[in-house]
């Protein structure tokens, strides 16, 4: 009885404190990029930006692009790292509102649950720009525009390339899929776009699909089991390069040759991925460019001046085959 009294509350304490400390820790780091001062009348506009985290090389390139272009465009940037937690991000946005920044931009950690805090921003008359990932709010007036990649399109481009490659195939083509973090927009949309595209050829069949959490370790661990459970895998579609890179190791360990025995298609085109593509271990990458900083600064100035902007703006993106990768690799920034 005493035991129970001793340890039961402590579990609750973990949860509460973890949440609280993570939040404060983040807030503390957040302001380090710029001086203080929000909405000062020095002609510069102040942009509050809440980043998802630093979960991948892609994300880091995205962060760098935003920071560099803010400096170049003379925008006062308040940067916050949410460490993949929605509650941190909500807290950061509330801080921005309190500091009366001119424009708020953020990459939502998850799709849902934003209505309240976006309403607060709207009430404070601060325009909001979504970058990279969207939210599922029914009220589209809660944000000015969504700047980012079209994940459905990325999935579709990957699928269309595969359909083209396998148009001569007579027998069934077995595909396994490494999904991103369950419930995230890129995972949902890339899955959707890919599935739509390969529906054109009934021979193409997804035989297994699991989440690898966008990480190399996750991609490797899942691929190992796919390989054991399915003797014949023809194609791997990974929702990002990192999972594909992890899967490479599992494929090699299983005694198969990546890029030859198994066709590998990924999304993102980060440097390690491009290298693998150039080396012939990947077969195709649909780019998802993180370099949206210049576009974002441009948009921030426009919405601050009250100009009308389209509700959806796509980042400039392309696709890469092995040959294109070889050519592009030397100039790749991230």
């Amino acid at each position: 009885m005493k035991r129970m009294r001793d340890h039961l509350p402590s579990r609750r304490i973990i949860a509460v404190l973890a949440a609280a400390l993570l939040a404060t820790g983040t807030a503390a780091c957040g302001n380090s990029d710029t001086g203080d001062g929000g909405g000062k009348d020095d002609g510069k506009i102040t942009l509050g930006f809440s980043q998802v985290g630093a979960e991948s090389g892609w994300r880091t390139a995205n962060t760098t692009s935003i920071k560099e272009s803010a400096a170049a465009a003379g925008v006062d940037l308040k940067f916050d790292d949410a460490q993949q937690k929605q509650e941190n991000q909500i807290k950061a946005i509330r801080n921005f509102i309190q500091q009366k920044v001119d424009v708020i931009a953020f990459s939502p950690v998850v799709e849902s649950g934003w209505d309240t805090v976006l309403k607060e921003a709207k009430d404070a008359k601060i325009p909001v720009i979504l970058t990279d990932r969207s939210v599922d709010s029914a009220d589209k007036s809660l944000y000015k525009t969504f700047l980012g990649s079209d994940f459905v399109k990325e999935g579709r481009l990957a699928g269309e390339w595969l359909v083209e490659q396998k148009k001569g195939a007579t027998g069934p083509v077995n595909i396994v899929e490494l999904q991103g973090t369950t419930g995230s927009a890129p995972a949902n949309d890339r899955k959707k776009g890919f599935a739509e595209a390969i529906a054109a050829n009934p021979n193409l069949k997804i035989i297994a699909s699991q989440s690898g959490d966008f990480t190399r370790a996750g991609g490797k661990q899942v691929m190992e089991q796919f390989l054991k459970a399915n003797p014949k895998i023809d194609v791997l579609f990974a929702h990002n390069d990192d999972m594909g890179l992890g899967a490479l190791e599992a494929i090699t360990a299983a005694g198969k040759v990546p890029g030859k025995d198994i066709t590998i298609i990924t999304v993102d085109a980060v440097k390690d991925g491009m290298q693998a593509l150039a080396d012939g271990r990947f077969n195709f990458i649909a780019e998802c460019s993180p370099l949206l900083g210049p576009q974002l600064m441009d948009l921030a100035k426009k919405v601050h001046n009250g100009e009308e902007v389209p509700a959806r703006i796509e980042t400039q993106e392309t696709t890469f085959t092995q040959e294109q990768a070889k050519a592009a690799l030397p100039e790749r920034k991230y």
């Binding site: 402590s10 304490i13 404190l17 820790g25 994300r59 880091t60 460490q83």
Partner: peptide
Amino acid sequence: PIIATLILMVAGRGLAQLVTEGQILT
């Protein structure tokens, strides 16, 4: 203990990212 180690749990993640400079270090 729960508080003492929580400090490093939070700060340590940041420290690790500082070491890798936010990149995945291959």
